[in-house]
Amino acid sequence: MSTVAPEADGLPGYNFAYLDEQTRRMIRRALLKAVAIPGHQVPFAAREMPLPYGWGTGGIQITAALVGRSDVLKVIDQGADDATNATSIRRFFARTAGVATTEDTSQASLIQTRHRVPETPLRADQVLVYQVPDPEPLRKVEPRQAETRRLHAAGDYGLARLALYEQVARYGRVRQAYNHPVLVNRGYLASPSPIPRFDNGKLDDNSALQLFGAGRERRVYAIPPHTRVESLAFDDIAWDTDANDQACSQCGSTDTYLDEIVLDDAGTRAYQCSDTDYCGRQQWGGVGHG
C-alpha cells in the first residue's frame, strides 16, 4: 500500500482505481474497524462494480480502496494467475490504476485471491485480499440473520459445532472440504472463504494482513498479522488437513495443495500444484524441494 495519497499527483476530479476518493475512504474506515475487531463482519456501503456479484466485487473494492501507485498487484483464481477471473481483475486494475502487476508471490505487495492461499509464505509488508461469496459462517445452521448476529454477539458457536457433530456421526470424520469456519483470535467465528481445508492452517499466525470482502452481502472482515486462527473442531478429534499423499507431476512437491486432473477417457489421473506460480518456481527456480 502506498502511504502517499494516491490522488495527490492525479488530475483533480479524476478517480484513481475506479472508485472515487470518498468511497475509498469509507471502505478504508470499514477495514480499520475490521482490523480492530478481528473476524467480526463490518458492514460497508458496497458500490456497483463493473462485474457481476460472484466475480469478486467485494475483494475488488478492498483492493481498489487500498491500492497505491507504488503497489505491485498479483491476482489469483484457484491458485492460478492466468484464470479468466484473475486475468480480468488484473487487467481492470492495470487500466484504472496503472499499477504494476506480477505473478510472483514474493514480488507482490497486494494479492487478491479467490479460493486459495499462496504456498509461498507471506511477509509483513504484504496484504492478502480474499474474495468472499458468503461471509456468514453460520448461514447453513441458522438462516435468520438477526439470529446469527445474536449468536456472534454471544460467542455462541454450539450450532456450528452441531453441523460438525452431524458430519462425524454420519461419515466418521469432518467432511467439509472447503470453507471450514475458523475462530479468529479466540473470538469471532469467520468464514475463511471457500479455500480448501488444506489452507486453513496458513491463516494462523500469518505475517501478512488478511482482508476479506463480500460484495453482495456488503461486509468486510480482517485477520491482522500474527493473529491466532483455529479451525472449528472438537477437542478430542485431530484436525485432518485433507492432504493427500500424492506428489505434483510437474514439480514433485508433496506438501502443496494439488489439483486432480483427469488425463483421458480411461480415467487416468495426474496431480498438479494448484498454485501455478509456486509450481513454476519449484521447477525452474532452482529451489530445492523434497
Binding site: R161, Y165, D236
Partner: peptide
C-alpha cells in the same frame, strides 16, 4: 447433544 454444545462442550466423545 445440541444443548451441551451450546453450553460449551467441545469433546465429541462426551
Amino acid at each position: 447433544a445440541e444443548p451441551l454444545l451450546r453450553c460449551g462442550e467441545t469433546r465429541y466423545a462426551s
